[in-house]
Structure formats: structure tokens, C-alpha cells
């Protein structure tokens, strides 16, 4: 941070004259004035509103906001709610699986695509198009695909495998895996794009040298290339965790948090308690928990990115 702000050769400062005219002073302040409205709305929309939500979470608000102070009562209530426990467990289960599968598959796709493939552009387009879709569309499509009466289960059975069962979406113990399947489908292309960009940044002479040494291609990837992709891994992990914590639309469209509340996530919990169950205080407390989780991941990441950025320039 110090680097930029101090070394900044401010081109906007007017030459220092003893009696700066009004227009010169205006010219000097103009950039800040132009930026001010944007900064102000962000200040209000992000930071003031977070403080406001925090306040509601410390009040006795139920159907309407009430601005009193009851300490951590709502948080105690939140952590005593079995539905919230389900939501937190699901979040960890979902995030773990979603990250592991998306990263493994995305990396595999990037490595395969990096082998001088013909029609690479077409394949990339195919892998990445789900990212352009709304989670509601994805949820709707997968709900249909995973539907046991008419979807994949029925098709495989009609091929002759009579006992084939794929009714995960209707069973409380397995429905969360359906959310993982759909989320992975939507996001692998994104992981692939970042890994591919990382692979393209690696000097190809390293691979050639290792090949001359007699190392096999899988070995080269495992011991040389993948470790070089560290920054890409970091980005993918952080951004996918963020996607998974805030994922709301997908769960709603695919399972509507069911069956029987079994796919509840913090985001759906927050929405239900705030807007449908008239427990605004508990809803706000859950939102603050979500925010704290995201902040714990994102702030160190942004800090390290910005620091490297400053040194780079």
C-alpha cells in the first residue's frame, strides 16, 4: 500500500502558485469529486449496511426491525436451531466435495486441452458455457435430469439394467450430493479456464528439458508442472469457496432445501428465517456468520494479491 500512494506522481496537481484561482482548485479536486459518489454508495451499500445487519443481529427484531440491544441472544438462538446445524454441516460437506471434484476435473481438463488439441476452441466453449447460465436454469435442468421417474434412472433401466437406481434427489441422505453434481457441472469450466491460463504461462522449455532427461509425461506433470500452478490453485480454491458459501439459487431451484430440510444451506436458512419465518434477528445473525466465513477466506487472499501487485509495478 505504501508503495503506490507515496511514489504516485500525481499528474493532476496543478503547479503550485501562491494564489490558486478557483478553477484551478476545482481542477485539482475534480478527480476526487468524480469518484466520490461511487465511493459513497459503496461505503453505504457495503460497510454501513453490514454494520446495520450486525445491529439487527444484536437486537430483538422479529417480524420488523427493532433497534434495541439484547446482546448475543439471537446468536445463541441460532446455534440452538437444529436446522442451522444441518445448514452448517451441509456447507462443509458441500464445499469439500464441490472443491475436490471441481479442482480435480478442471485440472484434468486443462491438462488434456493443453496437449495441442485440434478444435480446442470448440471444446473450451462447450466446457465453459454452463458458467453463462443462471443457477436457476441449471437447477431446473438438473432437477429434470435427476428425476427418478422420468430422468436418467428411467433411461438406464430402459437399456436393460432393471435394478439401476439413481433416486438421490428424493432421499434426504443423498440429496445434497445432487446439489454437488449440478454445482460441479456449472463451475468446472471456470476452474479449467484458470488452470489453462496458468499452464500457458509455464515455460515450455522446462517440459522439453525434463523429457530429454527421460521423465514420462505424467511424471513431469505431477512433480514439475502442478507445483508451478500454485497461484492458480490458490485463486480457484478461494473463488470456489466463495461461490459455495453464497450458493443459494441453485439449492432453491434444485431441491428447495428439501426433502425435509435435508439440503438446507446457510444461504437458504438466512432467506427462510428473514423473509418467511419472521425471525429477522436470527436471519441477521446467520448472515453475519456467513459474512465472517467469507471474510476469513477473502481478506487474506485480497491482501496477498494486492501486495504482490504493488511489488509487481
Amino acid at each position: 500500500m505504501t508503495d503506490i500512494s507515496q511514489s504516485a506522481a500525481v499528474p493532476g496537481t496543478a503547479p503550485q502558485r501562491p494564489a490558486a484561482t478557483l478553477s484551478a482548485r476545482l481542477a485539482r479536486w475534480l478527480p476526487r469529486l468524480v469518484m466520490a459518489p461511487s465511493f459513497l454508495v459503496v461505503l453505504i451499500g457495503v460497510y454501513l449496511f453490514i454494520a446495520w445487519t450486525l445491529w439487527i443481529s444484536l437486537s430483538s427484531s422479529a417480524m420488523l426491525p427493532r433497534y434495541d440491544f439484547v446482546g448475543l441472544e439471537q446468536y445463541v438462538r441460532l446455534w440452538n436451531t437444529p436446522r442451522w446445524h444441518t445448514a452448517v454441516i451441509n456447507l462443509f460437506l458441500f464445499t469439500g466435495l464441490f472443491l475436490a471434484v471441481t479442482i480435480a476435473l478442471g485440472l484434468l481438463m486443462a491438462i488434456l486441452l493443453d496437449q495441442n488439441i485440434r478444435a480446442e476452441g470448440v471444446l473450451r466453449t462447450v466446457y465453459l458455457y454452463p458458467m453463462a447460465l443462471s443457477f436457476i436454469v441449471t437447477g431446473t435442468a438438473w432437477k429434470w435430469v435427476l428425476n427418478p421417474e422420468l430422468g436418467v434412472e428411467k433411461v438406464v433401466q430402459s437399456w436393460g439394467w432393471d435394478t439401476f437406481a439413481f433416486d438421490w434427489i428424493t432421499r434426504p441422505e443423498t440429496a445434497i450430493y445432487c446439489v454437488v453434481i449440478a454445482a460441479v457441472w456449472q463451475s468446472t469450466g471456470f476452474a479449467m479456464a484458470i488452470f489453462l491460463a496458468g499452464l500457458r504461462g509455464i515455460d515450455s522449455s522446462i517440459i522439453k528439458a525434463a523429457q530429454i532427461e527421460g521423465a514420462s509425461l505424467p511424471r513431469i506433470y505431477a512433480s514439475i508442472i502442478v507445483p508451478l500452478l500454485r497461484p492458480a490453485f490458490l485463486s480457484v480454491i478461494v473463488l470456489l469457496s466463495y461461490i459455495s458459501i453464497k450458493s443459494f439459487d441453485l439449492v432453491l431451484a434444485l431441491t428447495n432445501a428439501g426433502p425435509g430440510g435435508s439440503t438446507e444451506m446457510p444461504s437458504t436458512f438466512m432467506f427462510a428465517y428473514t423473509f418467511q419465518r419472521n425471525q429477522m434477528g436470527v436471519g441477521a445473525a446467520s448472515a453475519i456468520m456467513m459474512l465472517m466465513t467469507v471474510a476469513a477466506i477473502i481478506i487474506p487472499y485480497l491482501y496477498s494479491e494486492l501486495r504482490e501487485d504493488t511489488h509487481g509495478h
Partner: peptide, 19 residues
Amino acid sequence: VFGMMLFGCFLPYQAVILP
């Protein structure tokens, strides 16, 4: 200022919908 705006990109919107 930039850093504060950047965090806004990663804001879980649940934390601001009530206000």
C-alpha cells in the same frame, strides 16, 4: 479506496439485504 471497493466484489449479499 480501491481495496474497500474490491471487498465489495466478494460480499455475500445476505449480509446487506435486510438494510
